[in-house]
């Protein structure tokens, strides 16, 4: 098992009621398996912010691994060795 700290920003932080949480993941887990585990845990309002109706991560939700933004096929990235995942929903308050 691996332990990863999930950091929430924007509306996701509002829904979870916490800025971060620590989750346990099976070895070999990818971003997709993390996202699916989190959506099951936190329910439909959370899932709706994070993924679209096909269950894919919304293009404008940033997935940041240990302070580095990811792009391209983000779901397939393996989380081996990652300590913190930041999930950032888009904000535009001005």
């Amino acid at each position: 098992m691996m332990e990863i700290t999930i950091q929430y920003t924007g509306q996701l932080a509002g829904i979870t009621g916490a800025g971060e949480e620590v989750v346990e993941l099976a070895d070999g887990s990818s971003v997709a398996s993390l996202v699916s585990q989190l959506c099951t845990k936190h329910g439909s309002q959370y899932a709706d912010l994070l993924v679209n109706s096909e269950g894919e991560i919304r293009p404008s939700t940033l997935v940041i691994l240990d302070g580095v933004q990811t792009e391209g096929e983000r779901s397939e990235i393996l989380l081996e060795g990652v300590r913190a995942v930041m999930l950032m929903t888009p904000i535009a308050g001005g």
Binding site: P59, P90, G93
Partner: peptide, 15 residues
């Protein structure tokens, strides 16, 4: 636009 390739559908004007 590299970060936000589409208008985010869940952003609300009132914040």
């Amino acid at each position: 636009a590299c970060l936000y390739p589409e208008i985010p559908p869940r952003w609300k004007r009132r914040f």
